[in-house]
Amino acid sequence: MKKVLCPLPLIVLLLAAGTVFAQHGDGIKKRRPLPEEYGTIVINNYSEYSGLSAVVYPHWLHRAIYTCRLCHVDVGFAMKTGGTGITAGDNEKGFYCGTCHNGRMLFRGKPIFQACEPPHSSRGWIPAEEARRCDKCHSEGKQPDQDYDFYSFTANFPKARFGNGIDWEKAETQGKIHLIDFINGVSARRPDFPIPSDDAIVPKIKGMPKVIFSHKKHMDWSGCELCHPEIFSIEKGGDRAMTMSDNFSGKYCGACHGKVAFPLIECDRCHKSASQ
């Protein structure tokens, strides 16, 4: 009788090798963020160095109140996490977070809590009330009391499949949100502007519907200089074409879509013309 090689050790070996490969190599499926987590970023320029938790910034709440342009152009926040180099000193002087989080600006009739206050070193201690306020932003690894809960705040908003699970565009057209695009003393008064027409971008893949890019929609929320030329330096019909691979790696559309704006897996929200 021929000796049959027992396959069990081989299977175990293969499974173990597969697991090790999966843990160290590419191909691990990332956990999809929960609706309230989508767009959230962690800012840790100097926080831990200063003995505080990193800042957990909820994009969902801010995008429900302000345009992207207001914060990323007028207030000066960079588009890449950590790219701004915000310090507590900047906030105290009324810049960055401190532009609105100054204890005076109002939202829904309530003052927006002050982000950072002048140094506590002279006192040598932080009162409990103040520490609780620090924790509202410096909240990584904590469960601080927040003023607004995602699910109750967005309960009446039109739903979407991915991202925050909110169709922000519809939320605006239906009047559920009224985005602020101007802050006195910060924003420059801009005259009415001519809006470029929609662009139809023809994909290389046959049968793939064209992308209908609405300049109006993007200009309302982002203005011009937020995208040009930093994100889109390429010109229409130029030699350099963008690819979906570029987008998925965070370039071009992927600078916002997949991070804060609806994710790239919602194909039909961009590729929406009749098939070629």
Binding site: V73, D74, V75, G76, A78, G85, T87, G89, D90, K93, F95, Y96, C224, E225, L226, H228, P229, E230, S233
Partner: peptide, 21 residues
Amino acid sequence: EDSAKKVYSRRLRMCHDMYEF
């Protein structure tokens, strides 16, 4: 001063680059 310089220099660069574009 540092904070104002940081904010307004970035904003100015964005305007400048947009016009150049």
